[in-house]
């Protein structure tokens, strides 16, 4: 099990826009470099990419909530 960590403090989003689907759902395949979420920091959106390949387990942080640098955002089963 690997965790995707937030590189920056900010607001975490699991969808590219409010109307869109989540980037990943439980059971989805994850490749290295896949976007799993967005961090909004100082009015800029930064894509959070997975550094591991595997199967998506779950988001560890809720959509639209503040996160700290180093906080777990999602879990991927390797």
């Amino acid at each position: 099990m690997a965790q995707v960590l937030s590189p920056l403090p900010g607001t975490f989003y699991v969808k590219p826009s409010p109307e869109a689907d989540q980037f990943k759902s439980s059971g989805d395949a994850v490749a290295v470099g896949d976007t799993i979420g967005l961090i909004e920091v100082m009015k800029t959106f930064i894509e959070i990419k997975s550094e591991v390949a595997g199967t998506f387990t779950a988001y560890a942080a809720e959509d639209g909530t503040p996160v700290q640098a180093g906080e777990a955002l999602a879990e991927v089963a390797e």
């Binding site: 403090p9 900010g10 607001t11 100082m42």
Partner: peptide, 9 residues
């Protein structure tokens, strides 16, 4: 002071 991430830079 910790600069908050929520507002402009």
């Amino acid at each position: 002071y910790q600069i908050p991430p929520f507002y402009d830079s």
